[in-house]
Design a protein around this nucleic acid. Sequence first.
DNA 1: TAGTCGAAAGAGAACGATCGTTGTCGTTTA
DNA 2: TAAACGACAACGATCGTTCTCTTTCGACTA
Lengths: 201, 201
Amino acid sequence: MPRTSERYRDARREYILDAARRAFARNGFHATSMHDLFAEAGLSSGAVYRYFAGKDEVVVAIVEDNIRQIGAMIRAVTEERADGSFGAALAAAVETIQAKHRENGLAGIGVQAWTEALRDPRIGAAFEELLTGLRSELAEVVAHYQRTNTLPPGPSAESLASVTIAILVGYIQQLALLGPDAVADVPDALRALWPSSAVAG
Amino acid sequence: MPRTSERYRDARREYILDAARRAFARNGFHATSMHDLFAEAGLSSGAVYRYFAGKDEVVVAIVEDNIRQIGAMIRAVTEERADGSFGAALAAAVETIQAKHRENGLAGIGVQAWTEALRDPRIGAAFEELLTGLRSELAEVVAHYQRTNTLPPGPSAESLASVTIAILVGYIQQLALLGPDAVADVPDALRALWPSSAVAG
DNA sequence: TAGTCGAAAGAGAACGATCGTTGTCGTTTA
DNA sequence: TAAACGACAACGATCGTTCTCTTTCGACTA
């Protein structure tokens, strides 16, 4: 018979993750020690280790959540805008990412997560799943724009989806490194590159 | 009066950096210890520390070289192809990057460097310089394509340059994470997106 | 309903391991 | 032969983690 409810445990876990996110966004995964994390959360080591088996588990939890966030944002925006132009859908995705980044530093965590994916098999697998899943889903969206002649019919929908992902990933990278203001004009460029009217191919 | 020539010292330094690159590409900057580096180079700590003041200096040297490589490749390709189509120039840049990655794991080091740029001010400054310099140079190239009606005249050349950088950065990211085969069809997509003929805008 | 008991939560000191770095001493070469 | 190179042991610091002890709170009992 547990002393506390499951709701309490979940809330506590989330509280620790929030503190970890702040600390990690400030100094990076590796440069942030567990003691830094304890200080940021205002808790002792014993308290934190009751909810996470180790530092790796904290990192993985944060990265997996970050993956889920980014994936969900891209999916939501591109699908709901399937009737507008391709450029407008892309611009909307970018603007959503930017807004989220301003409030919780999404991009910084994301960039760090990509590097971690190269080393940690668990994170690597999660990213591969995100990217390949996103690619096939975006391929369907892209195919729609190919049929309506706003994207060239020549290349495969999958290859165009890869370019789409590249744009979003590269945008997040610049967002993290240069800040939101430096890339504020990207949405306009995307809308102009792929407007509603037909494009040569 | 030094025991050896300056040429010897330079060669030795480069030898150590090559070993470090291999070790870092395999395990990442942080997960690779100096002892790992000594083993990879087949040298003692004393030998390495005679050429580098510390681990940070090794990392910075490798990252700065990586920045120089990527910047040079993008500049060379986009400038020499200024008479072809924008898509062809982009595809050529991507193919050059892919070839280099196959031979020395360029993309993996690059992705790690981006993360390090968030934390180390020296690396961060180098990257900001690369990105902003590249952006203004690419803006001139892009402006050329805007004048010849192969890119829409509406958006600023700088904003289109940011999108161009995003594509290249995002491509490198996918190259590192998914491997060359998974993104082999990207060049074709780029050529199809921006062919020689005029594009609506 | 008040009191008691047991288990979970949390604090905090401390430990073992590892890492980056240094210092010493032999070796090599202009 | 003097100075740089290089090997190697070892050091201090730091980090992730554990262990012990106290505190807290829900459940059961009278």
